[in-house]
C-alpha cells in the first residue's frame, strides 16, 4: 500500500506491506533507528513515538494506519544538534546507562510535559509506567523529569 507520513517535519511516501509494524517502517524503511524494540507484546515502550500529538507505542500500530499522520520521534527532539532541557537533564542526572530505553523515555516524558508542565513525582511515575528500563531503576529518570518540571 502507498502511504505518506510526515516524520519530524519531513514527508515520506513509501509502498509498504499492510502487515508491517510502524516501528519496523520507521527503523527499516526510513532508517530512523533511534526508536527501539525491546519486546514483542507492547510492554516495554522503547518504540514510543508521538503521532498527531498522541503518545503511542509504534509496535502496536501498523505502518498503514499511520498514513497521513505527523509523527515525532527522538531524532526530532533536539534542534541543530542542541539538546533540549529534558535531554540535558537526563545527562545531568545520569538518567540513562545503556541508552536503549532512553528514546522511549524521552518521548513519554515529552508528551507528559506538554500536557502537564508541572507534574508531581507520582504523575511522572505514572507517565513512565509503560516504559521499562533495566539499567537505572528509574530513580534518576524521575529526578531528571522533576528537574525540568515547572
Amino acid at each position: 500500500m502507498e502511504i505518506a507520513v510526515t516524520v519530524n517535519g519531513q514527508t515520506y511516501e513509501r509502498d509498504v506491506e499492510p502487515r508491517k509494524l510502524l516501528i519496523h517502517f520507521l527503523r527499516d524503511d526510513l532508517d530512523l533507528t533511534g526508536s527501539h524494540i525491546g519486546c514483542d507484546t507492547g510492554n516495554c515502550g522503547a518504540c514510543s513515538v508521538i503521532v498527531d500529538g498522541v503518545l503511542l507505542k509504534s509496535c502496536m500500530l501498523l505502518a498503514v494506519q499511520a498514513n497521513g499522520t505527523r509523527i515525532e520521534t527522538v531524532e526530532g527532539l533536539s534542534e541543530d544538534g542542541e539538546l533540549t532541557r529534558l535531554q540535558q537533564a537526563f545527562n545531568e542526572h545520569h538518567a540513562l546507562q545503556c541508552g536503549y530505553c532512553t528514546p522511549g523515555m524521552l518521548m513519554s516524558t515529552t508528551a507528559l510535559l506538554r500536557e502537564n508542565p508541572s507534574p508531581s513525582e507520582d504523575e511522572i511515575k505514572k507517565a513512565l509506567q509503560g516504559n521499562i528500563c533495566r539499567c537505572t531503576g528509574y530513580w534518576n529518570i524521575v529526578e531528571a523529569v522533576k528537574s525540568v518540571a515547572k
Binding site: 527503523r27 530512523l32 533507528t33 533511534g34 526508536s35 527501539h36 524494540i37 520521534t73 527522538v74 531524532e75 527532539l77 533536539s78 544538534g81 539538546l83 535531554q87 537526563f90 545527562n91 540513562l96 541508552g99 536503549y100 532512553t102 528514546p103 524521552l106
Partner: peptide, 15 residues
C-alpha cells in the same frame, strides 16, 4: 556517551 544516545544516534546491533 549520552549526547548520541539522547538523540537516537547510538548504533545498536539492529541498526
Amino acid at each position: 556517551e549520552d549526547k548520541r544516545l539522547l538523540q537516537g544516534e547510538g548504533v545498536f546491533v539492529d541498526d
